[in-house]
Computed example of a mutant assay.
Amino acid sequence: MLFVSLAAAGIVLGSGLAIAQIPAPARPVALSDALPIPDAPAPKVSKAWVLLDAATGQVLAGDNIDTPVEPASITKVMTSYVIAAEMAAGKVKRDDPVLMSEHAWREGGAATDGSYSGFEVNKTAPLVEMEKGMVVQSGNDAAIALAEHVAGSEEAFAQLMNAYAKKIGMRNSHFVNPHGLSTEGHVSTAHDLALLGRALIHDFPEAYSYNKLKEFTVGPITQPNRNLLLWRDASVDGIKTGHTSRAGYCLMASAKRGDQRLISVVMGDTSENQRAVDAQALLNWGFRFYESHRLYDVGKSLATPKVWKGAADVVKVGVAQPLLVSTPRGKYEHLKASMDLPKSLVAPIAKGQRLGTVKVMFDGKPVAQAPLVALEAVEEGGFFKRLWHELLMWWQG
């Protein structure tokens, strides 16, 4: 990941400060940098697809990214997220005994002709083992058993799924069950699913790590992970496949090369192999032609606007979270940033108080923005200073 200085982003301050000059590129400009980026290798048959930069959340390429489609077993990534979140909240534990109920066994077991884990009916297994059976083997029975354990029923668990989906920012998704078998009203989008994968990787890395297991054994049955990219590309470490007759072949894949992580989602492909081929092509294209930039770190002062009526005359402002963007390789000098700050800041100002916004543009298009906060507190000045500043503010106003 590249680190770009304040000047490199061409900062313009709303308060009227001068435009910072763009320095020379951090690396020599290659001949290929001047060439246009070729179109992304779009899957030829899929219903929807997207390529997302995991660090920034930016969409690098896609088609029908916000069109609702059936997510099939990629649904289980949402199930994993809910379980991990409820575990973090202390509501369930990794060694909880989870019962493979008769309902879970009948609705999602071997007799259903769908993916199953192999846990015995009316017997328990530790939650973490049941979850691996759901993630690696895509066990529908394990997904139902886990939902019943966490929330009492599939219906109640689906309410949790939708609540967490809203929190993640999945705007066009609605979940009805924990496994992804075709059900009326059970939909998501390529974009939403990529955001979900990003959230699982960031929020619950241990739960995400189960997705790179190539096989899992329950009793005498060993089943392989259906994500073929785990065998084809060492940089791929997840995440989930899906297939039903209505949804087609689906794959959410994630890979990390160096400091850069990308997530591809292909929905409604024609075969198990084709979804892997299409996902691999998107990942290769993204790593070849795009890079992530870390523009501003937490605690770094980006500006010192004037403060009225304060013990100090200025306040340092910066970002509360690192601000990252994605650009075509060799093009970071095309970034421009502006700060939207009030013309008048009046003390007292608390440390961490939001004061404005920094916005980043690439070739005239917005690519990122973040709140600007006070990096220090500014207390009120003395009585006479406040009175004097009051007169000056009146005069200037």
Score class of each variant (00 low, 15 high):
V373E: 03
A85P: 00
A42Y: 08
L229M: 09
L392T: 07
K214N: 07
G108R: 11
E107S: 14
L387D: 01
S209P: 01
H243A: 07
A337E: 09
A199N: 07
V314P: 00
D192T: 06
P371F: 09
K91W: 06
D63G: 08
Y332A: 15
I168R: 07
L335P: 03
N122V: 04
A151D: 03
T304I: 06
L193E: 14
K93S: 14
A125V: 02
K385C: 07
L6Y: 03
D33K: 05
P205S: 06
A255H: 09
D278H: 07
S338K: 15
G118Y: 10
L387R: 12
T112M: 15
T217K: 14
A374Y: 02
P38G: 11
G197Y: 07
I83Y: 09
V265I: 15
Y249C: 08
Y210Q: 00
S73C: 10
V325A: 11
S80N: 13
V135A: 14
R94C: 02
S271R: 08
S188E: 02
F119K: 02
K167I: 05
T241N: 03
R246T: 04
K44G: 12
N227A: 03
L193M: 15
G152W: 03
L31T: 11
P126C: 03
T217D: 05
L335D: 02
P178W: 02
A147R: 05
A276E: 10
M161V: 09
W285A: 09
S301N: 01
P36T: 04
F204L: 01
V69C: 11
Y164E: 15
I239V: 14
M130Q: 07
E379M: 08
A24E: 13
A7D: 15
R226S: 05
G286P: 11
L213S: 04
H293S: 12
K44C: 00
V277L: 14
N211R: 11
L302I: 02
H334F: 07
M267E: 12
A42K: 08
Q274H: 15
D63L: 05
Q353R: 14
K359C: 08
I11Y: 13
I144V: 14
A253L: 05
N64M: 04
D113R: 15
R246A: 12
L2F: 13
H186C: 08
A40W: 10
G248H: 04
V314G: 01
P41K: 03
A72N: 12
I201W: 05
T124L: 02
D269F: 01
V307D: 08
E215W: 03
E70F: 13
A54H: 10
V128Q: 14
F383H: 09
A276Y: 08
Q274E: 15
K309F: 07
K343H: 06
G364N: 06
P25H: 01
I221T: 13
V12T: 15
L372Q: 11
I263Y: 12
K256D: 05
H334W: 06
W105C: 03
S301Q: 02
P36G: 05
M267Q: 13
S32V: 12
L251G: 06
I65Q: 05
E70C: 00
T183E: 14
A279L: 03
L17C: 04
K91T: 13
F3W: 10
A158K: 06
L2G: 05
Q159N: 13
A370D: 08
M130R: 02
P28E: 06
H191K: 01
I19W: 12
K44Q: 13
A85G: 15
A142R: 01
